[in-house]
Structures are given as structure tokens and as C-alpha cells.
Design a protein around this nucleic acid. Structure first.
Lengths: 217, 217
DNA sequence: CCGCTTACTAAACAATTGTTTAGTATCCTA
DNA sequence: TAGGATACTAAACAATTGTTTAGTAAGCGG
């Protein structure tokens, strides 16, 4: 008979302990002994269930991706809700999972690519829908590139949560944090912050910067 | 007598080897033996010069921050150039240093905070200048929070360089990569991508999302 | 030339690591 | 209820880790 708090299989408890530790100590900094201790089991049992440390890592990746996909599917709504959902849905997940995703995507690797590309695909779809319904203007150049830049921008709040939390004074991995920063994000995205002409100048300056750099690498 | 390629002190060579390795293998995954081998010295010498592995890490942080500050100071221009410089200046640094910064800021920690806050301070200054000269509109709420969100957004290109490189087909840590992505970034920042009304709806949706989340954490 | 510091290596040390082994308890099924 | 699989532990193993030690070579001021 298990208590209410520990209403999980032992394997799940080990996996969740790893999900909590990997983002903090890194993949190499996390020892199987620490994970085992957190889960209240012996180190050998971790191997017994997951085969190896790498197997444990894979299991964590799989679980997090599955949880994210499921969460997004559940929170799929219409119109503005749908548009807000793509990233925001993650904030409805349990905090350790959000932390794990932020860490994974920032770290790189195959799972990171999987998550990123999934979000890019979704954004491209939203572009197509938005253009048909007139809520999104003509996309410059390649929609996929435009989507990638947008996803990276949106994700930044997740990756830099530590720093934004410091500035905002609210935990940025919570829905409250998202709500606190959203107005500032929208201020930027609405084009109200920068003057249009300034933007053109900046564009030219960047191009010139590139030209001046040519051949120096 | 040293060759042209290795025109550095031994300590500098060790430090640069570490700067190249830390972002790839992580702080715990990087062994002193690997760094020593890359620099062509014995493991003991690393300790002799830097005291400990932690000392080596600190030396790398210091060097990178110093290089970044110096680079920014040198590339400080006027008007549009100055505005473009804050992040773009990093792209003029040597690739390993850029990689190290991207890794550090994404990883978190004290140095990450130092770099991030420095860029935020700079952005706040630019806001003040821009408001006086009319190139920047009224900043919503707290300028520092606005700056933090902006810096995080700009930095995303650096942290997600791996994924953006995949989508764009150009190395995003080079000036060419920056130039390729800049039009897409500006498209978003100019407010041309999203309809203003859609943005208002999204804002409301996010607020509602927050309300529906209240008390569930 | 002496003596001292600095730059450096080779080898060994102690701790920690992921993993294996051997064994016990518990459960399920036939 | 017999028996084989499963869940689990304690202890040991082999490899790797950061670090120390002892020692050599080279520069340098006096």
C-alpha cells in the first residue's frame, strides 16, 4: 500500500527524480547514486530498470516529450486561444517538466531538435491559417525560417527564466510569470517600441556590418 | 621559438582549449586530461597554472567577459550602428568565444547573470536615448523589464543557433547567419507579422489562461 | 657560478563513477 | 503449492576523475 504522495511506480519515481536533477546538475554532473537516493532506492535498481544512465536519460526525454504533446493536444482551442497555446501550454505542465524542457532545448541534441521542430511546424500551420483568415500579414521569404525565428524568440522566456525571474521578481516558469511578461513581449511584437524608420536603418547597418566582415573568417 | 599558429603563452593555450571544450562537453563532462591534451601539456600543468578545475573555469569566464566588453567598446558607434551593435558585436568575436557565451548564458550561474544584466543596462540606456530623440516610443511599464524581455529575445538567436542553423542552412554564429536571419527578426519586431487586433485577443487569452490557473499550483 | 623561482612532466593517490554480481524477498501463474 | 519471473539490495569491480608529489630543466638576478 502506497501513500498518496508517492502514488507512482518505483520506475516512475526514479525517472522523475532524474528529471528533477538533470537540469540542475547537468547530464554528467548527475550521479546515479544521487538519483537513486532521491527516489529512495539503491543505485543498482536504476540500472535494473533503465539498463544504463543513457537509458535513463532517454526515458526522461521520452516522457517529457510525451507529456508536452499530450498537454498541447488537450489545450488546443480556437482562435486566439490556439495562438496563445503553442508555448503557453507548457506553462500548464508541472514545473519540473518545464524546467527539463527549457534545459533540454537550450542544451541541444536530438530531443531538443525534435521539440523545436515540432513547434516550428505548428507555427507554420498557424501562419497558413492566419493568412487565410487575414489575421497575419504576408510572411517575408520562407515561412519556415520566419517560424523558426519566432519560436526561438518565444522560447527565450523559457531559457532565460532565471534572468527574467531576477528582473521581474516573479518565477518565470509559472503562469503568473508568463502573464507578467506578456505585455512587454506584446509591446515589442506590436511594433510600438521601435520606430519603423529606425528599424530600416538597423537593417542597413547590419548588412553593412556583414559586408565589413566578409573574408575575415 | 614558437610557431605563428601557437603564438600564445602556455597558460593561454590551456585556457583557450578549455573555452573550446566546456560548451561542447559541459563543465563536468570536460576532463582536465582532455584539456591538457588539446593544449599539448600534462594534466598537472593545468593545476599548476589555474589551481583547480574551478579556477580554470573562472579564468575562462573572466577572459570571455573581458573580450566581450572590449569588443563592444571598440565597436561602439552612433545611431543605428550603436543600436545594432549591442548583440551583433558578439558576432565579430572569435567563434569559440561566441559559443562559450551562448553556452554560459543558457546554462545560468553568476557569469551568465553578469553578461545578461550588462546587456539589459545597455538596453535601458538606449531606451532613454531613443525616447529623447524620438526613435523609440513610450515604453510600457518598467523600462528594465522591457529591456530584459528584449535582450532575452535577441539572445535567443545565440542560444538556439543550433536549431536556427538547421533551418536556415547557414551557421548562425557567423555574421552571415545574423544577416540572413535579421530580416525575419525585423519582420516580427516591426509589427507587420501579427495583426494588432489579434495581439489584443492574445493578450486577453493569456490573462484568462492565468485566471484559470489560479490556485492550481 | 650560485641560488631561487618558474615552467613543466611522470607517476602515484584517493575519491567517485557507472556497472556487475550474487543473493533475497515478493509476486504471479500454472 | 511449486516454480519461475520480477523487484529489489549490498557489496564489490574496473575505470576515470581531480589532485598531489617528487623531480627535472630552464631562466634570472646577484
Amino acid at each position: 500500500m502506497r501513500s498518496v504522495v508517492e502514488d507512482k511506480t518505483t520506475a516512475a519515481r526514479i525517472r522523475d527524480a532524474a528529471i528533477a536533477r538533470f537540469p540542475i546538475d547537468g547530464i554528467n554532473g548527475t550521479t546515479l547514486r544521487a538519483v537513486a537516493a532521491d527516489a529512495g532506492v539503491s543505485p543498482g535498481l536504476v540500472i535494473h530498470h533503465f539498463g544504463s544512465k543513457e537509458g535513463l536519460h532517454r526515458a526522461c526525454d521520452d516522457h517529457v516529450v510525451r507529456a508536452m504533446t499530450q498537454m498541447k493536444r488537450e489545450s488546443l482551442g480556437e482562435g486566439a486561444y490556439r495562438r496563445a497555446a503553442s508555448i503557453a501550454a507548457m506553462y500548464q505542465m508541472a514545473l519540473p517538466l518545464v524546467r527539463y524542457i527549457a534545459w533540454t532545448v537550450g542544451t541541444g541534441g536530438e530531443t531538443a531538435a525534435r521539440i523545436f521542430d515540432e513547434l516550428v511546424d505548428e507555427a507554420v500551420e498557424l501562419f497558413a491559417e492566419g493568412r487565410d483568415s487575414g489575421t497575419i500579414g504576408e510572411v517575408y521569404g520562407d515561412p519556415r525560417k520566419q517560424a523558426a525565428v519566432l519560436v526561438a524568440m518565444q522560447f527565450s522566456a523559457l531559457v532565460f527564466h532565471e534572468h527574467l525571474t531576477r528582473v521581474f521578481g516573479i518565477d518565470m516558469l509559472t503562469a503568473e510569470g508568463l502573464a507578467a511578461s506578456a505585455p512587454y513581449t506584446l509591446q515589442i511584437l506590436s511594433g510600438d517600441l521601435f520606430d519603423r524608420q529606425v528599424m530600416e536603418e538597423t537593417k542597413k547597418a547590419l548588412q553593412e556590418l556583414e559586408r565589413s566582415q566578409e573574408g575575415t573568417r
